[in-house]
Write a protein that binds this DNA or RNA. Structure first.
Length: 305
DNA sequence: GACAATGTTACAGT
DNA sequence: CACTGTAACATTGT
């Protein structure tokens, strides 16, 4: 899924609706993409072992590291789900439509949303409901890890600090960014090994707020600007969570409903719009930077020196 | 048909 | 070995 606020919204939903329930059955059409986390990611063990390990286990809680959803189960098991571009987790009553080989929401309502039809993983829960993963592009990663070995697991050992970690100070922020002194600031902000959780939407929004050009080299950003950026990153991520995530594309919350942050964008996909910064005469322009689109103001986000 | 799409990572090249 | 840029993953919407 999308970025940190969307993942946090989903984790909150799992804790609210699925916590305390037991997993009774698992269905998937991912095949070999589901693996257990003991070995190398290239050497997956398949679905059978995954199912054997988690059926009968209780969901004790959910948490998040970067954009990884962690569903903790009894018996020292944690299911790690990284939803990549188009995944989202939902909770509700579903039925398998054998004719179309598709899972469908039992009742009309938000779960019947066309964006919710690409369901590739289903956990049947003890309350008769299902926890499902919709994943249009099938990029998602699903892995089983022993809970007490989470931080040293292959999937999380290299991940950078999370902006909502208590240790995420301004000092740490600059230390991390300074590992890529010659990089474009927007690109560096989005590297998971540098900082976890910031993607294309929130990097555009944070840079707009801080007034920094996305191609500004990290080493050329003065400390006072870095401080503005540090605050901006935390502020836009918080705002994203407050608005229930960003559903400009396919993101839906655990009940299949859209978030509202897409209505708050100042830069992301605002190409051609006048800049909303107070008394700024600029216009939002789009440019591809390191292979991804960046959106920024032509006036208050100029490249310096 | 062309192009773009919220993320990550393997790989080739330097 | 370290760093960097690109392609790839699979599929849909515009």
């Amino acid at each position: 899924m999308p970025e940190l606020p969307e993942v946090q919204t989903t984790v909150n939903g799992i804790n609210q609706y699925a916590k305390g329930k037991t997993i009774e059955a698992v269905w998937t059409d991912y095949g070999g993409k589901i693996h257990v986390g003991k070995g190398n990611i290239k050497d997956p063990k398949y679905f059978k072992e995954f199912v054997q390990s988690i059926v009968g286990k209780k969901i004790t809680s959910a948490s998040r590291i970067g954009k990884n959803v962690l569903i903790h189960l009894s018996g020292n098991h944690t299911v790690l789900i990284h939803m990549k571009m188009t995944g989202h987790i939902m909770y509700g009553e579903y039925l398998f439509d054998a004719k179309n080989k598709q899972w469908l929401a039992k009742e009309d309502g938000p779960l019947r949303d066309p964006f919710n039809r690409f369901i590739h993983l289903v956990f049947s829960l003890s309350d008769g409901k299902h926890l499902v993963l919709s994943d249009m592009r099938k990029f998602a990663k699903v892995t089983l890890i022993e809970t007490n070995k989470l931080s040293s697991s292959l999937h999380l050992e290299k991940i950078g600090p999370d902006p909502f970690d208590e240790h995420f100070t301004f000092k740490l922020f600059t230390e991390r960014l300074n590992k890529k002194l010659n990089g474009n600031i927007k690109t560096v902000l989005m590297i998971p090994e540098i900082i976890a959780g910031v993607g294309n939407i929130y990097s555009d929004e944070a840079l707009w707020l801080a007034g920094i050009h996305p191609e500004q080299k990290v080493k050329t950003i003065p400390p006072e600007k870095m401080k503005l950026l540090y605050k901006a990153v935390i502020e836009v991520l918080k705002k994203g969570i407050d608005f229930g995530g960003d559903s400009m594309s396919d993101y839906r919350n655990i009940l299949g409903k859209r978030g509202e942050f897409q209505g708050q964008h100042n830069a992301y996909r605002k190409t051609g719009s006048p800049c909303k910064k107070k008394s700024c005469a600029g216009e939002i322009i789009r440019k591809v930077i390191n292979g991804r689109s960046a959106h920024f103001c032509s006036v208050h986000q100029q490249l310096k020196k």
